[in-house]
């Protein structure tokens, strides 16, 4: 099994208060869905909206996310899957893809 970080992107500022109820409910079900498909969610986190983010570049501190974009990171989880195809099969079902998208990055080592 390989571990992947699944980074969830939704429209800025990715505030849970803006998330439709059915999307929230689907997020709650996602880990069980991953297990049903033979994967395993090791751990996962949802984040406060990007309006609460603070960034540091060199020694300058600024308000807001590191990269200004229409979509920002809303959360992430660590997924254990057999291979990239398997991880894709599971990550495609994540509700973040409804209004935004996901990025799949293998963990180093």
């Amino acid at each position: 099994m390989t571990q992947y970080a699944i980074l969830l992107y939704t429209p800025a500022p990715a505030d849970m208060a803006d998330m439709p109820v059915e999307e929230q409910e689907a997020h709650m079900r996602h880990a069980a869905e991953a297990e049903d498909l033979g994967g395993h969610v090791v751990t996962g986190f949802a984040l406060q909206p990007s309006t609460t983010a603070t960034s540091v570049r060199a020694d300058t501190v600024t308000d807001g996310p590191f990269i200004e974009a229409k979509e920002v990171i809303a959360g992430f989880y660590i997924l254990e899957a057999q291979d990239l195809d398997h991880a894709l099969q599971i990550a495609k079902r994540n509700p973040a893809t409804w209004r935004g998208g996901v990025e799949i990055r293998p963990l180093l080592g």
Partner: peptide
């Protein structure tokens, strides 16, 4: 190698 793209022929719906 790093992302584990499998050396495999896709099946079914894929």
């Amino acid at each position: 190698t790093a992302a584990r793209i499998p050396f495999r022929v896709p099946q079914g719906r894929d």
